[in-house]
Design a protein around this nucleic acid. Structure first.
Length: 575
DNA sequence: AAAAAACGGGG
DNA sequence: GTGTACGTTTTTT
C-alpha cells in the first residue's frame, strides 16, 4: 500500500503503531504493529558502572552499543522501555545518575522513531507481511507479523478534496459562539458542491434543513469518500476550530476518521493544527508562506501570484447582507465556490513538491506541511544520523537558545548598485555557491577543530579550521543530495513522457531546495546541529570567492555595477 | 528600555 | 503525547 499517515494507540498497555494507507485497489487500509519499543540513549562516563547503576535503578532491557557523537566513537547505552509515556518520567531520573554524562534521543516522537528505524517513507509504497483481522468494503485492518518494507514506487496519484466554510457575520469577524455556518463548499476532481441552508438557482447548491444538517452532511461526505487529502486555506486556525465549536454547540458528532474517531486539535506551541485519522488535512496557508515570498498571504493574493488570475471578491464584513438578500445570494455562492476552487488549484500545483519533500525527509505530509524548512532539514538529518550510527544532538536548552540568539553571522558580500541605466551588461553567478563551499571545505560541526596538528581547510577572516578528513556528516549528506539531483536531471533529459519529466522536475527541485537550506540552518537557533563557526566560515569563503572573481574580471576590463553574495553584474567596453 | 501583547490567515 | 515548536511589530508598563 501507499503509506499516507502514521500514529500509535495504546491497547492493553501496549503501544501499537498504526500505518494508514491505501492499497492497489484504492481500499483504505490500516496496518498494526505491536512489536516496536521506545528507547533512549545514555552516554556513560564509564560504561560498566553506568550499566550497574541503571540495573539498580530497575531498568531491565539495556544494551551497550557503538555510536558516533559528532564523529567521535562512543559507547552508548540503549535503554529500551515498554511505552513512550514512560520516557518523560524516566529521563529525569536517568539524567541525574552519577555515571550518566548525557541522555540522547529522548524527544523523538514514537511514530517518527518507527519510520526512521524501519526505513519507511510516507507517500511511498510499502509491502505488508501480516494477516487481515478485519475486512469490509470500507476498510481493511492488517495485523503485521514484522515491520513493512519500502518498495520502489511511482509517485502516487492522490484524491484531493478542498473545502471552505462561510459564516453569518453581522458584526464583523464571526464568533463561533453565536454566528452560524451558512454553507460549506467542497471541490474535488469529480464535482463542485455547496451544502447550504438556503438554495438558489445554482445547480451545485445542495439544500439542507438547518446548520446541523450542513455539518452532518459534511461529515458524511468525508466519511464516505475518504479522500487522501483534505485541503483548506487557514483551515487550522479558522475553518476547523469553527466547525468544531459549532458541532459541539449543535451536538453533531464529527467522527470522520478512518477508525471512527473525531477530529483532533493539536496544540503546537503558538499554533493549532487539526488532524483527521487517515485523511491528511493540509492547511495551505503555512505551506504558501514558505513557498513564496509575498507581503501578504491572502487566498486572493496567493492565487493571483500562482495563476495570474483575479477571483471574485466580496467585502468580508458584508457577506451577511449577501446572504439575507435573495437577489444577492447567488453572488455569495459563486464567491464561495471560487474560494474553494482556488484552494483546490493551489493544492494541485504545490502539493507535488511537498509530497516529494515528504518522500525525502520521511515524515508524514501532515507534519511536513506545517514544518519550517529548518525543521524539515533537521528531521532529514535525524534520519541520516540513524543510518550513519551518529547520535542526534539534543535540542538547545532555553538558556542555550538565548545565548544563540545574541550571536550574529556576517552575510554575503554586497556591492550597492550604481544608479543609472547600464548597457553592455554581463552577468555572472556561482551555481550552488554555499552547498559547494560546504562540500569542498568539509564544513561540518564534526570536522571543526582547534588542533593545530590536523590537516585542515582554514576559513578566511576568522580562521576557523575544518579537518580535511574524514568527510563530515553534513558535507557528505549534501554531496549525496547533489549527486542524486544530478542523476534525476539526467533522467529528466532522457525522459520522453512529459508526465514523467514533470515528476522528475519536482524531485530535483525538492533536492535543490533541501541542499540550499543546509547553509541557513547552521545559523538557525533551534537547530540541533547549530554551528556558528560553520555558518561564518561559509559566508567568509563566499565573500572571498566573489571578491576574487570580481577582481579577476576587472583585470580584463569589466566594471562591476552590482554584486550580491554569489553573483555580480558588470559592464564592459567593446574591446 | 524592558516586558507584554498583538499579528498573520480566516468571515 | 519520547508534548507545549514563530518571528516580528506594536503597545503597555
Amino acid at each position: 500500500m501507499i503509506l499516507l499517515d502514521i500514529d500509535y494507540v495504546t491497547v492493553e498497555d501496549v503501544p501499537v503503531i498504526r500505518l494508514f494507507g491505501r492499497g492497489e485497489d484504492k481500499r483504505p487500509r490500516i496496518a498494526l504493529d505491536r512489536s516496536f519499543k521506545p528507547y533512549i540513549y545514555a552516554i556513560p562516563s564509564d560504561a560498566d558502572s553506568c550499566l550497574e547503576e541503571l540495573e539498580e535503578a530497575g531498568f531491565k532491557e539495556l544494551e551497550v552499543v557503538e555510536r558516533k557523537d559528532l564523529g567521535r566513537p562512543v559507547d552508548a547505552i540503549k535503554i529500551i522501555l515498554d511505552h513512550p509515556r514512560e520516557v518523560p518520567r524516566i529521563r529525569e531520573k536517568i539524567r541525574n545518575l552519577e555515571h550518566v554524562q548525557e541522555i540522547r534521543e529522548h524527544d523523538i516522537p514514537f511514530y517518527r522513531r518507527y519510520l526512521i528505524d524501519n526505513g519507511l517513507f510516507p507517500m511511498s509504497k510499502i509491502e505488508l507481511k501480516g494477516h487481515s483481522i478485519e475486512s469490509s468494503q470500507d476498510i481493511e485492518v492488517v495485523e503485521l507479523d514484522e515491520p513493512p518494507r519500502t518498495v520502489k514506487s511511482k509517485f502516487p496519484e492522490l484524491e484531493i478534496l478542498a473545502f471552505d466554510i462561510e459564516v453569518y457575520n453581522p458584526h464583523g469577524m464571526p464568533n463561533p459562539e453565536e454566528d452560524e455556518i451558512i454553507m460549506i463548499s467542497l471541490y474535488d476532481s469529480e464535482r463542485k458542491r455547496i451544502i447550504s441552508t438556503k438554495g438558489g438557482h445554482l445547480n451545485f447548491v445542495e439544500l439542507v434543513e438547518d446548520e446541523k444538517a450542513i455539518l452532518e452532511r459534511f461529515a458524511e461526505i468525508i466519511k464516505d469518500s475518504k479522500p487522501d487529502l483534505l485541503v483548506g486555506y487557514n483551515s487550522d486556525n479558522f475553518d476547523f476550530p469553527y466547525i468544531r465549536k459549532r458541532a459541539d454547540i449543535l451536538g453533531v458528532k464529527l467522527n470522520i476518521g478512518w477508525d471512527g474517531s473525531t477530529i483532533k486539535s493539536l496544540r503546537r506551541g503558538f499554533a493549532t493544527a487539526t488532524a483527521i485519522k487517515g485523511t491528511i488535512h493540509v492547511d495551505l496557508y503555512p505551506v504558501m508562506r514558505r513557498y513564496i515570498n509575498l507581503d501578504t498571504y491572502t487566498l486572493e493574493r496567493v492565487y493571483f501570484e500562482l495563476f495570474g488570475e483575479k477571483k471574485v471578491e466580496l467585502p468580508g464584513d458584508q457577506l451577511w447582507e449577501y446572504w439575507d438578500d435573495k437577489t444577492l445570494r447567488d453572488q455569495l455562492f459563486k464567491y464561495s465556490l471560487e474560494d474553494v476552487m482556488a484552494t483546490y488549484r493551489i493544492a494541485e500545483k504545490i502539493l507535488p513538491l511537498n509530497m516529494e519533500i515528504t518522500r525525502i525527509v520521511g515524515q508524514p505530509l501532515f507534519d511536513i506541511s506545517r514544518m519550517a524548512t529548518g525543521q524539515q532539514v533537521e528531521w532529514f538529518l535525524i534520519r541520516k544520523a540513524f543510518e550513519y550510527g551518529e547520535l542526534v544532538p539534543n535540542k538547545p536548552s532555553p538558556s542555550e537558545l538565548q545565548r544563540r540568539r545574541t550571536q550574529k553571522v556576517v552575510g554575503g558580500y554586497v556591492k550597492e548598485p550604481e544608479k543609472g541605466l547600464h548597457e553592455n551588461i554581463v552577468q555572472f553567478d556561482f551555481r550552488s555557491l554555499y552547498p559547494s563551499i560546504i562540500i569542498s571545505k568539509n564544513i561540518s560541526p564534526d570536522t571543526l577543530t582547534e588542533d593545530p596538528e590536523e590537516d585542515c581547510y582554514v576559513a578566511p577572516e576568522a580562521g576557523y579550521r575544518f579537518k580535511k578528513k574524514p568527510r563530515g556528516f553534513v558535507p557528505s549528506i549534501i554531496g549525496q543530495i547533489l549527486d542524486e539531483r544530478m542523476k534525476i536531471k539526467n533522467l529528466m533529459k532522457a525522459a520522453e513522457d512529459p508526465m514523467e519529466k514533470r515528476i522528475l522536475d519536482v524531485q530535483q527541485e525538492a533536492l535543490k531546495r533541501l541542499a540550499n537550506t543546509m547553509y541557513g540552518v547552521y545559523g538557525y537557533t533551534r537547530f540541533r546541529w547549530y554551528c556558528l563557526e560553520c555558518a561564518e566560515a561559509i559566508t567568509a569563503w563566499g565573500r572571498d570567492y566573489i571578491k576574487k572573481t570580481i577582481k579577476e574580471a576587472e583585470k580584463f576590463g569589466f566594471h562591476t555595477v552590482y554584486a550580491d553574495t554569489d553573483g555580480f553584474y558588470a559592464t564592459y567596453q567593446k574591446k
